[in-house]
Computed example of a mutant assay.
Amino acid sequence: MFIAIADTITLEDSGNFREFHVAIDGDIAAAVAAFDGRATASKRDNHLWIDIAFVQELAGDAADAADAEWQAQFDGMLAYANSKGWIDEPANRVEAHIQPPG
């Protein structure tokens, strides 16, 4: 799955739990501003810390509590990210790399 930033912010390919990134055209400051407080720049180049609840919000019906399979796979993705140091538990954020759309 990836977050696309264009005119709006959308979650694309929400069933792909093996890839997580942010697709932007522009710089990191513009991307952070587009998230309206739901993301911050990482200390690592070309990465953002993204609010996990916002990712679930973007997933819409797929992340509904009734969809246990989606939630289990999402939780698995987060557990993997945590094992790599890509989760900021106090802030409830996951780190994602930035790549150009396409």
Rank of each mutant, 00 (worst) to 15 (best):
Phe2Cys: 07
Ile3His: 00
Ile3Thr: 05
Ala4Thr: 03
Ile5Ala: 00
Ile5Gly: 00
Ile5Cys: 02
Asp7Trp: 02
Thr8Ala: 12
Ile9His: 02
Ile9Gly: 06
Ile9Met: 08
Thr10Cys: 00
Thr10Ala: 11
Thr10Arg: 14
Leu11Trp: 01
Leu11Asn: 09
Glu12Met: 12
Asp13His: 08
Asp13Asn: 13
Ser14Lys: 11
Ser14Asn: 15
Gly15Met: 09
Asn16Trp: 02
Arg18Asp: 15
Arg18Ala: 11
Glu19Tyr: 10
Glu19Leu: 11
Phe20Pro: 00
Phe20Asp: 05
Val22Asn: 02
Ala23Ile: 00
Ala23Arg: 10
Ile24Val: 14
Ile24Phe: 06
Asp25Met: 10
Asp25Glu: 11
Gly26Leu: 04
Ile28Ala: 07
Ile28Gly: 00
Ala29His: 09
Ala29Ser: 13
Ala29Arg: 06
Ala29Val: 10
Ala30Asn: 07
Ala31Val: 03
Ala33Asp: 09
Phe35Met: 09
Phe35His: 03
Asp36Ala: 14
Asp36Trp: 00
Gly37Lys: 04
Gly37Ala: 05
Gly37Cys: 05
Gly37Ser: 03
Arg38Tyr: 06
Arg38Ser: 10
Ala39Cys: 04
Ala39Arg: 02
Thr40Asn: 03
Ala41Thr: 04
Ala41Asp: 10
Ser42Pro: 05
Ser42Gln: 05
Lys43Tyr: 01
Arg44Ser: 13
Asp45Glu: 11
Asp45Ala: 15
Asn46Arg: 14
His47Val: 04
His47Met: 10
His47Arg: 15
His47Gly: 01
Leu48Ser: 02
Ile50Pro: 04
Asp51Asn: 11
Asp51Ala: 12
Asp51Glu: 15
Asp51Val: 01
Ala53Cys: 00
Phe54Cys: 00
Phe54Ala: 05
Phe54Asn: 02
Gln56Pro: 03
Gln56Asn: 10
Gln56Asp: 10
Gln56Thr: 09
Leu58Asp: 07
Leu58Met: 06
Ala59Arg: 07
Asp61Ser: 12
Asp61Trp: 07
Asp61Ile: 04
Ala63Asp: 09
Ala63Trp: 06
Ala63Leu: 11
Ala63Ile: 07
Asp64Arg: 14
Ala65Asp: 13
Ala65Tyr: 11
Ala65Cys: 03
Ala66Pro: 01
Ala66Cys: 09
Asp67Arg: 13
Asp67Gln: 13
Ala68Gly: 04
Ala68Lys: 15
Glu69Met: 13
Trp70Gly: 09
Trp70Thr: 01
Gln71Thr: 10
Gln71Gly: 00
Gln71Pro: 01
Ala72Glu: 13
Ala72Asp: 13
Gly76His: 09
Met77Gly: 05
Met77Gln: 11
Leu78Trp: 03
Ala79Asn: 06
Tyr80Arg: 14
Tyr80Ala: 13
Asn82His: 14
Ser83Asp: 13
Lys84Gly: 04
Gly85Glu: 09
Gly85Lys: 09
Ile87Gly: 07
Ile87Val: 15
Asp88Ser: 12
Glu89Thr: 14
Pro90Arg: 02
Pro90Ala: 05
Ala91Thr: 08
Asn92Gln: 15
Arg93Asp: 01
Arg93Val: 07
Val94Trp: 02
Val94Lys: 06
Val94Gln: 14
Glu95Trp: 03
Glu95Pro: 02
His97Lys: 03
Ile98Lys: 00
Gln99Trp: 00
Gln99Lys: 12
Gln99Cys: 12
Gln99Asn: 06
Pro101Leu: 06
